[in-house]
Design a protein around this nucleic acid. Structure first.
Lengths: 135, 135
DNA sequence: TTTACAAATGATAATCGTTATCACAAATGG
DNA sequence: CCATTTGTGATAACGATTATCATTTGTAAA
C-alpha cells in the first residue's frame, strides 16, 4: 500500500477495526477524540473517505441514512434495525442470489447488487415488549 | 381513502403518475410549478410524505442519495445508474429471493428486504463510448 | 541540516436535501 | 355564519457532509 499512514489515519482505522461494528463518522470521531482530543471531525470524514477509496475499509450506505464504515472490505450484505439503525452483517451466499437472476435489467451494464434486510434487532425487541407490559 | 385531495396534492400525484418515473421532490416541484407557479417546494415535500404515508405512492431511498417517489405502490426492487442516478424497476421474482433465504439473521424480527442493483444505464453507456472515441 | 515542496490537519464556512415554524388562507361542519 | 381544523407558501433551521484555507507536519533533495 502506497498510502501514508499518519497518526490520525492509523487511529481511525484502529478504532474502527477494534469496534467490529459499522460505525458512522461521528461515532468514530467520539471514540478517537478520547485518544487524540484535538482531532477534527473533518479529519475523520476525510480519512474515512481516503481509506475506503484505497479499499482498506468499506463504505456503507443504508436506506437514505447516515453513511457507515465497515472494518471488513469483502463484499457482503447487511441487516439493519429500523428502530435504532444498528447494522449487522448478513451471512448469505451472494452467488445464489445472482443465480436467481433478474431479467429485464433494462439494458444496464450491471456493476453489482446489494441485498438489504430490514427488521428489529433483538435489543429493540426486548425494549418494545417491556414497554407493552407497562401499558 | 379518507384523505383530503387538495389541488396541490392532486397535481403532484398526477404529475408523478404521468411521468412513470422515479422522481425526486425537486424534479416534481419543477414539473408542478409549470402548472401552479405559486406552489412551494415545502408543499411538494409535505404532500409526497403524506401520500406515501397513506400508501398512495411509494417512497424510495437508494444508496444514500436523494429520496425518490414511486407512482407504483406494490413492493418491487430497483436498478439504478451510478452515473446519472436514474432509477428503473426491476422485474424480479421476490419470492425466489426469499427462498434463497438468509440464515444468521442475528435474531432480528425481519420486516422486509430490498434488492438494489447498480450499473450504468443505456444512455450513459452511449455517452461514455462517444467520449472514448474523441480521446 | 537547512531549504523547499507536497500532503495532512484543524477550524470553520458552505452546501445540499429535508423538516420545522408560523402567519395566513381554505375548507369543513355544526 | 362562525369556529375549528387543515393546508399553504415563505423562509428559517437542521443534520450530514464537503470545501476552503491558513498552519503544521512530513519527505526528499541539495
Amino acid at each position: 500500500m502506497q498510502l501514508r499512514m499518519t497518526n490520525q489515519r492509523e487511529m481511525i482505522l484502529r478504532e474502527l477495526r477494534k469496534s467490529k461494528q459499522h460505525l458512522t463518522a461521528d461515532e468514530l470521531y467520539e471514540k478517537v477524540k478520547k485518544i487524540m482530543p484535538r482531532i477534527s471531525l473533518a479529519t475523520v470524514y476525510r480519512n474515512l473517505e481516503i481509506l475506503s477509496e484505497a479499499g482498506i475499509i468499506g463504505k456503507l450506505e443504508v436506506s437514505g441514512r447516515q453513511k457507515r464504515f465497515d472494518y471488513e472490505v469483502e463484499e457482503h450484505d447487511h441487516i439493519y434495525c429500523v428502530v435504532c439503525h444498528r447494522v449487522d452483517n448478513l451471512e448469505i451466499d451472494r452467488e445464489s442470489i445472482r443465480e436467481v437472476g433478474w431479467n429485464s435489467d433494462k439494458g444496464y451494464a450491471v456493476h453489482g447488487y446489494r441485498l438489504e434486510v430490514a427488521g428489529i434487532c433483538p435489543e429493540c425487541q426486548r425494549k418494545r415488549s417491556k414497554k407493552e407490559k407497562k401499558q
